[in-house]
Design a protein around this nucleic acid. Structure first.
Lengths: 236, 236
DNA sequence: CAGTGGTCTAGACCACTGT
DNA sequence: CAGTGGTCTAGACCACTGC
């Protein structure tokens, strides 16, 4: 039953497991005060740094809540909010063992007010606009419509996005600081529907993302996915 | 410019900030080897534990990648995968200052094979089934269709879900261990469309979640939201 | 082999909480 | 005030890597 008899479990991990077990088994209830670091030091026969590390990491994991001077408590709000993981399209296809291909529909400058506003640029300025379709094994699964800040990516229009996706290019060029995401369900317009080879009446799962770099809006992208061929999945 | 002159910044935080700055400014490039703990100890005049903590926390944050015996490297894949936060419906409405109301459509036992299979129960067993509509200021925004494992929640059918949502009740009753999530876009059937007061042709944003407790499937829930009135949002 | 990171100790000083 | 957690030190032993 134990094919790998090696791997000694670090003391701080054992303490973390112990704490988690006390909570899961209901011995330490939500919101209650747990033993102090000093008591756990005596109980486990380790130094305080070791106990402290275990409790600190459980605080990061939202399992415990520590108040200096008062004590350590079991977190009461659990699984109230939750996270869904979203990968980049090329990684995702690669991880499934599929072949990625990309078709470029638009790659040009634009003065659309909508683009300038999204990027926080002045009315007289210009932006870059690209529109691509990503295929997995020759089936379209994502329509990528993107506005790019030309002051951060002056050579954006000269890239060959057949070989490097805009996402990968942009993360290479400038360190991204922050991003905001919105997931919605929307009906595609006729041209988008044709590009994605969708039946009439089929909705799209849409991810819109705005990303900042160097304190400015770097890019705003809208990703359209056919509902029948795409989903966001995650676990925790 | 510094209204709160107090707050001494801990050394490990200063080191974390230093490392982040080196990376953001491009001095330490993606994938490159950074100075060893020993060198940073000399540079900052602190103990190795302090440097180690800084680097370990940056490893958790996916900023660094450490290999025992080799060294510490700048992580190359950044912002490749991303997280969307999803809150519980009652919290969400409350945080917007709205009023939550709940209408109970179904609350009964079921022997549907689909329910039993989802919960990992035997064919001769039974499950609980509930269907509710959640309103924000009297506008329907979520249709909650839920199967519940009766062995974990034997008193589920006796609850008053007007006052406590199933989500809150279940997290109170049993500590949840793990969850899997799928987000899709789907067209509602006619009854769901009527329940959510939706126009014909409008899609739904659907979240399906399966949750485990005590090593068993505790519940599987499908949440239908009118696309025009609901979205998932997050940032990082 | 020398150098790296992973873990751990036995102290220490401090800021903070509750009484 | 005694007790709590937050931080930090100056060592130590070990497992691992690359040469």
């Amino acid at each position: 039953m134990s094919p790998s008899p090696s791997k000694p479990v670090p003391a701080y991990v054992q303490i973390k497991d112990y704490v988690r077990l006390q909570i899961e088994s209901g011995i330490w209830t939500s919101g209650s005060l747990i033993p102090s670091e000093h008591e756990l030091v005596k109980q486990f026969g380790v130094s305080r740094m070791t106990v402290h590390r275990a409790l600190r990491e459980l605080t990061v994991d939202q399992v415990l809540n520590r108040v200096q001077g008062a004590g350590t408590f079991v977190t009461s709000h659990k699984y109230q909010s939750t996270l869904i993981a979203i990968k980049s399209i090329s990684d995702e296809i690669a991880s499934r063992g599929g072949t990625h291909r990309c078709e470029i529909l638009i790659l040009e400058p634009t003065v659309e007010p909508r683009a300038l506003e999204a990027l926080g640029l002045d009315a007289g300025d210009r932006a870059f606009h690209s529109r691509l379709v990503h295929f997995e094994n020759d089936v379209p699964i994502q329509l990528e419509d993107r506005f790019v800040n030309p002051h951060l990516y002056p050579h954006y229009l000269e890239q060959d996005f057949h070989t490097v996706t805009p996402n990968v290019y942009m993360t290479r060029e400038a360190p991204l600081q922050r991003a905001e995401y919105v997931i919605t369900a929307r009906m595609p317009d006729a041209t988008a529907r044709h590009r994605l080879h969708m039946d009439i009446g089929e909705p799209c799962l849409v991810l819109q993302r705005k990303t900042w770099a160097h304190g400015q809006v770097a890019t705003e992208v809208t990703l359209w996915h056919p509902a029948s061929r795409y989903r966001f999945a995650g676990s925790m």
